[in-house]
Design a protein around this nucleic acid. Structure first.
Lengths: 223, 223
DNA sequence: CCGGGCTGTGTGACCTTGTCACAGACCGCC
DNA sequence: GGCGGTCTGTGACAAGGTCACACAGCCCGG
């Protein structure tokens, strides 16, 4: 199989297999720089991007400028909102931007539409990602509506910390963390300061060092 | 066509047509009382319900007891989370409850699964509702995360008012309104009191009367 | 090595919203 | 008329968003 990304996603693997060589002929490999917009709120989508490597952040922006990350795209996934827009003809309801250098296959909208109409395997692939997304977005609603920000921030730090090495360090400005959580920079700064005073973390310009992961875990609980 | 609900939803109409008489043979007509749970958070779904009449509210509950309505099901729609759960084998991530007497067709989970696997028309139907839901839930995230509650409440009152007759009256307790908006009773009471003082609405036990719709419309804007 | 300019962080004041506790007001029913 | 349940009003406080502004770290050019 010439598609290294297919392994992790069974439904994608089937979708690719059924196309045979047509995929290679039609899909273009693209390399996108970091901080590149994939989709812009309110615009129609011109094609589908299927991630090979890198990460894409999908987020909303308020008029106030505050941001909130809905989810991230990982390799093997495609921007399902894109797919949804293509198939239903609606405008894209958010922004999508690359967070690193990204490799992807791109497929023109009409081709993608034809595949989904013709091959059940593609419908299955689209359905899979779509239902996964619905679930994650519902989780986001729950977080934003019900959980306290200090608990969410602790969760966030731990999540990023485990994905890095030891001693767990997160390289991000307070501004960026706030954008992920849907909060504001000042509030995140305040809470981080509290964590620091409690000896849970240490800070430097542009980075957060986790000192006491289990202590942070305790802050995760609703209190 | 023996299915009165099909007209409003082209994708459903096709899905029903392709089944021929099989639908009538398998689907059971059910009549549910008001305040009846359709789905319970964390449980697997035993079947699909296809609404003929009435309304179903799908919502989350926090540990604090606060609620937030994600969306409502209207006639012709089915609980797409149910479908999603059936097809992906995950647990239902929310609650669904009837808000009135509800008539519906019910289809056992395995039958539904077979239809979706076999008929592109059913895949199309599922996809349609699923993508619509994703969009509405993203809207809810945006509302909850970014908009002020007075603006959201004004919107809410107007939405319910237009769907009723003149003089627009909404029959609901503050508790219920709060549950829809994901807020708390006290806060809704306070804001309604403000609206009343401004002459926008009038209140009685269990109802809100809209006096000045355009005034409420002004409160809708971010200020 | 000094001084701008830029980006990132800290802080106080104030407002909105959520929470808790409790008082009343309305309603149906005996 | 009285009683219990539901619904609404209110004050006090905590959490979080907004605004204004100070200041610290960093890059870079003179």
């Amino acid at each position: 199989m010439p598609h290294p990304i297919a392994d992790a996603y069974p439904s994608l693997e089937q979708a690719l297999r059924v196309l045979g060589s047509e995929f290679e002929q039609v899909a273009k490999r693209a390399q996108l720089p970091t901080e590149q917009y994939i989709c812009i709120e309110g615009q129609a989508c011109s094609g589908l991007a299927l991630l090979i490597s890198g990460s894409v952040r999908v987020y909303k922006i308020a008029e106030s400028g505050r941001e909130l990350t809905l989810y991230r795209l990982d390799p093997g996934e495609s921007c399902i909102l894109t797919a949804s827009c293509i198939l239903s003809g609606r405008a894209f309801p958010a922004f999508a931007i690359t967070e690193s250098e990204v490799h992807a296959y791109t497929v023109p909208a009409p081709t993608f539409q034809r595949w989904v109409a013709r091959y059940p395997e593609w419908q299955r692939y689209v359905f899979d990602i779509l239902s996964r997304r619905l679930e994650t977005v519902i989780e986001v609603v729950e977080e934003v509506a019900f959980r306290r920000l200090d608990a969410r921030l602790a969760d966030y730090l731990l999540a990023v910390a485990t994905s890095a090495g030891e001693p767990a360090v997160l390289r991000a400005t307070h501004e960026l963390i706030a954008a992920d959580l849907g909060s504001s920079r000042e509030v995140v700064s305040r809470l981080l300061k509290d964590f620091q005073r409690e000896g849970l973390i240490d800070m430097a310009r542009g980075e957060v060092r986790i000192l006491d992961a289990s202590g942070l875990g305790a802050r995760t609980l609703r209190s």
